[in-house]
């Protein structure tokens, strides 16, 4: 995906010291970051933390952005990596019983969803996505909800297009099986 002209302008303005330009970029991408993280983690609290981490990385690393990929791909790369990293860390924490699932559920009552119906819908989606291993979940989300091409997904994950296709096939099969139960 080529770089959006508007993004390039915002980046250049930010690098010249215009903080407002960064805010514009953050406003433009924060929902995408949030939703990717939310679908990956299944939790508002965790997605919120990832949004903050990703925005911080963007703020600090934008000066190193070489325009070799689109900003959009770069942001997804950072977000995806953070999510995978977070999920592994969570596995360790759960193994050590530092995070009790009940406590996590209580924490998640503070949500950004407007109504109970939406919470139910998202809970169903979380249940389905949770059956997938983290990396398959990542590919499934990028392909199915972000509607990325395999080339874009490969750019985000750093893996081959063929591998992405095979992984998506396996993920889709598992999702279909789960939904047919």
């Amino acid at each position: 995906m080529p770089n959006n002209e508007e993004d390039v302008q915002y980046i250049n303005r930010f690098l010249e010291g215009d903080e407002a330009a960064f805010n514009k970029l953050a406003e433009k991408y924060r929902q995408k970051i949030y939703w990717h993280a939310r679908r990956m983690t299944g939790s508002h609290i965790d997605a919120d933390e990832i949004v903050q981490e990703v925005l911080l990385v963007l703020y600090r690393k934008l000066k190193d952005f070489k325009f070799k990929s689109s900003l959009y791909t770069w942001i997804y790369k950072i977000t995806s990596t953070r999510c995978l990293n977070y999920l592994s860390r969570q596995k360790v924490r759960r193994f050590l019983s530092l995070d009790e699932p009940e406590i996590l559920n209580i924490k998640d009552n503070y949500d950004v969803l407007k109504n109970i119906e939406d919470k139910d819908k998202l809970a169903k989606l979380d249940q389905i996505l949770k059956i997938l291993p983290a990396k398959q979940r990542q590919i499934f989300i990028l392909r199915n909800f972000e509607e990325m091409s395999y080339e874009e997904i490969a750019a985000v994950t750093g893996k081959s297009v063929g591998g992405m296709k095979a992984n998506y096939f396996h993920a889709l099969n598992k999702v279909m099986e789960k939904m047919n139960e």
Partner: peptide, 21 residues
């Protein structure tokens, strides 16, 4: 899946994201 994914958000949350950062 599309239906489960179509949810409405409280926009206030996103307004606060950048100041928090």
């Amino acid at each position: 899946l599309r239906k489960y994914n179509s949810v409405e958000l409280n926009e206030k949350y996103f307004v606060n994201a950048v100041p928090v950062m």
